[in-house]
Computed example of a mutant assay.
Amino acid sequence: MELTFATIVVAFAGVFLISFMRGAFGGGFAIIGIPLLSIVMDPVTAGGLLAPLFVAMDLYALRYWKPSTWSRPDLMLLVPGLVIGIGIGYLVFRVLDHRAVAILMAGVTLAFVGLWFFKGAEVTRQPRSRPKAIAAGFTSGITTMVAHSGGPPLAMYLLPLGLSKEIYAGTTSLFFTVGNATKLMPWLLLSQPAAKTWGLIGICLLSIPIGVWSGWRLHGALDQRKIYRACYGLLVLTAVKLLWGGVSGYMA
């Protein structure tokens, strides 16, 4: 990777966008910003660049998503599967076809959103389910490690619970704080960032405070229904990105 002016601008914009999503929705939509990074670097380099930046975003976001916004019962069910899933995802990354994983996750996500739309596109309040939570945490761990796309499995579990917008975002934020800290070393082992990459990481750190703050302000301006509809809309964008990445990978 050449550390050109274009590389710096594109990477800075991508990290800002991901930070904005962290502030507005608690996280889980990092893949929305990855297409920008893919303009100037390959996916593995982008993964190594983002791994430490995710941790920095998480730590900064904790000043907004405080313990009062965490759903502890759900986190207790979700986090163990997340950690195990990241370990499995590390092995999947090395031995299995990432494109097939991306296409499968895209199909499941689009089906989930389609079912929600078919039912009236309203905020629901379903009971908590231990098996669903464990499955969601585990699947999110695999997909966040393989494709930085752990958001859809988590959202498919949390959104139907009808949590308040603050609890939804805070729970999502802490979930990915644990996940990103867990996958930091595996990603650094996979990508082994060069000195230029670390320099770019230092520059991109400057975009995090304003990005998280801007997203948090948007979160405060939107009501519960708008937040949930935005989350479902972002799930569609995430699924389309996963589907395109998987299919185009086979066509290349």
Rank of each mutant, 00 (worst) to 15 (best):
L110D: 10
F175A: 12
C231S: 12
M57G: 00
G87P: 05
F12Y: 07
L50K: 00
G107P: 04
P186Q: 07
I32M: 05
L184E: 11
A252D: 15
E2Y: 08
L110E: 11
V240D: 09
I34F: 10
Q224A: 14
L154F: 09
L96Y: 08
R22Q: 08
K119T: 12
L36H: 05
F54A: 02
D97G: 05
I167D: 15
K183M: 15
G137M: 06
G87M: 11
I86V: 14
L59N: 12
A6M: 12
R63W: 10
G33P: 04
K132H: 14
T144F: 10
S173I: 03
V247A: 09
G28R: 01
F112Y: 13
G202Q: 01
I32A: 04
I167N: 14
A46Q: 01
I103R: 02
F20Q: 00
T177I: 08
A239P: 10
G120F: 09
A147N: 02
M105F: 08
L62F: 10
L222T: 09
K66I: 05
L17D: 00
A135C: 12
L174T: 09
L237I: 12
A194W: 11
L218G: 03
G199M: 14
G179K: 00
L53P: 00
L159K: 01
I88D: 09
F29S: 03
A181D: 11
M251Q: 14
S38Y: 14
G137H: 03
R125K: 15
G233C: 08
L184G: 04
A155S: 11
G141H: 03
S207Y: 01
V212R: 00
A230L: 13
S248G: 09
V40K: 00
T144L: 10
V123L: 09
K226F: 13
L234N: 01
A111T: 10
T109G: 07
A13Y: 00
H98L: 15
W213N: 06
V44L: 15
R72N: 12
K196F: 11
A102N: 05
L188P: 03
L53M: 07
G215A: 06
L3E: 05
R22Y: 00
L206W: 02
L49V: 06
I103F: 08
V95M: 11
T182R: 01
A61F: 01
L59I: 14
G245W: 11
L77F: 07
W244H: 09
A155F: 06
P73G: 07
P186K: 02
W213S: 04
H98N: 15
S149I: 07
L110Y: 11
F93L: 15
I208S: 00
P80E: 12
G141Q: 06
L184R: 01
R94A: 15
E122T: 15
Y90F: 13
I86A: 09
K196S: 13
S129C: 12
P80Q: 05
M76E: 12
S173G: 09
F118V: 07
R99A: 14
C231Q: 11
P43T: 11
Q126T: 13
P153C: 05
A239T: 06
D74G: 03
I31V: 13
E2R: 03
G199Y: 12
G170Y: 04
A221H: 14
F5V: 13
V92L: 07
K66Q: 14
G179V: 02
I32W: 02
